[in-house]
Structure formats: structure tokens, C-alpha cells
Amino acid sequence: MDNIQLLIETPPFALQLVIEGVLLGGIFALAAYGMALVWGVMNIINIVQGEWVMLGGFIAFALAQWGGVPSLFGIPVAAAALFAIGWLAYHTIIFRIVDRDLFTSILATFGLSILFQQLMNQIFGADVRTLESGLGSWYFFNSMVSISQTKVLGFVLAGVIAVVLTIFMRSSRMGQAIRATAQNARAARILGIDTDRVYAFTYGLNAAVCGAAGAIVVMAFTIHPYQGLIYTVRSFTIVVIAGLGNLPGVIASAFGLGIAEQYAGFTLGAEFQNAFVFLLLVVILVARNLKLQRRREVLR
């Protein structure tokens, strides 16, 4: 409660939280955009989403720590590696569940999630990891507000990735094929689009985006093997708020979630920040559904 008073009396602290939230939200937006992509195109809720972020982070971490590769360079490498992993995952597992019921797709991706989470735990241990960028911070308002340059860099990079992705989806042939398949897979198939290839590419692309996001996370924030699920839940929450195929909505909700998390962590205590994220999901789902039920509908 003291913290709430502090926020009201000292506006710069509130500003600090908003800035931190937005910087964090940039990462969330990338993962959420990927989840919406897979959801919209393949009708799969990809529970392993957060693990792709986490894997990307560990790849960048391993490269920098043991290979001496500069951390910025880790981003494209992690993206490429995750594209390959995603593509492989599609051709071994995911293609078998695309047309199956939701029970199968949720549980199978949940199994993958446990698999990768535990695999990373075995290889890297459960410690929290981060890469030192060597960059400093900017200070404002008598040092009451500090902005880490690494986080700003990460945010800018996330923006660059989002722009590249948007251009790709709009203008490339594959991007158009993906959008056509999302609208109507059967029609796309009849018109000669190889939907299997589209699915594989979509799934790989999603993993690559998450991988890049993960490489940014390890630079600007921290990673550990068990953090995948919370990224999945964040992505899901954002997509539920924004809806499928709504990029501005995804970005806005991601910033909103980032800010809300910062505030929750500050006022409730850091130990309840994760609980807040999960409970927020539950509250949003239930609230949306109750609203729909008054219109004689349910969330589908």
C-alpha cells in the first residue's frame, strides 16, 4: 500500500513503470503476433509458444557465452535456428494434429512445451541467465527515472522485426499464400496453394519470430528454462484481447499488458507479479464471456 502512495506522490515513478511496461510490451507483441498467426492459419493454440522464446534466448546465450559471438548477432542466428526447429516440429508432430480436435492440439503442444522446458533445464540448469550488453542507462528527473539503453535497443529491434514481418506478409508470395490459407484453407488448396508447405512455413516463421524475441530477452531482460509458459499465457491473453489478424490491437494490448504487469509487480510485490499475469488471463476470459453471454453468445 505504501507503494501506491509513493506512485501518487511521485509521478516520475509512475512514468518509470509505464516506460518499463512499454519496453517489455514490445517483446510480448512479437510473441503474441506469432501466436495469432499460427492460431489464425492453422487453428492451433500453440502452447509451446513461450518455449520458442526461451529456446531463442538460450541459443543467443550459448553463442555469446561460449562462442564469443556478439549478442546482437545472436538475434538472426536464433531466428534461423528456431525457424529450423519449428519447421522440423511441423514435419514430425504438428502436421499430424492440424486437422485433429482441439484436445489433441492443445495436449500435444503442451507436451512439446514440457519437453523443451525440461531439456533446457537439463542442459543449462535452472539458473536465471542474462547477457551483459555493456550499455548504460539514461537518467531523467534527478535520476528518478532511468531507462536502460539495452531495453530501448531491444524495443527498437522488436519494432524492426515487426516492420519486416508486416512487409513480408503484405508483399511476398508466401505471405499472400499464408493469408489466403488463413481465410479459407480448402479454397486455397483448390487454387493450387500447397497448404502443407504454407503450414510448415507459418509454423517455422512463428518459431523464428519468437526465437528473435528470445534473443532480445536474454540481452535486455533475463531467461530461465521455466519461463516459457508465462510467455505463452501472455501471448494468449494479448490475442484474446486484440482478436486475430489485428496487428495494431496486438501492439496496443501488449503495451497495456506490459504496463499492467509493471504496476502489479510494484504495488503487490514482485512475488505476485506472475500470479497477476495468470489471474488476469482468467479474469479477462471470464469477463469477455459474460459480456457475450448477455448477447446469447459464447467465446469461440
Binding site: I45, L229, V233, L279, L281, V282, N289, Q293, L299, R300
Partner: peptide
């Protein structure tokens, strides 16, 4: 009141 995906992931969150 939630169905399908929403119930599964909502309860995961719980």
C-alpha cells in the same frame, strides 16, 4: 462458461 481452448488455457492459468 468458457469453451474449448479458452477453458483449457484458463484453467492452466488458474
Amino acid at each position: 462458461g468458457l469453451r474449448g481452448h479458452y477453458f483449457a488455457i484458463g484453467t492452466l492459468g488458474l
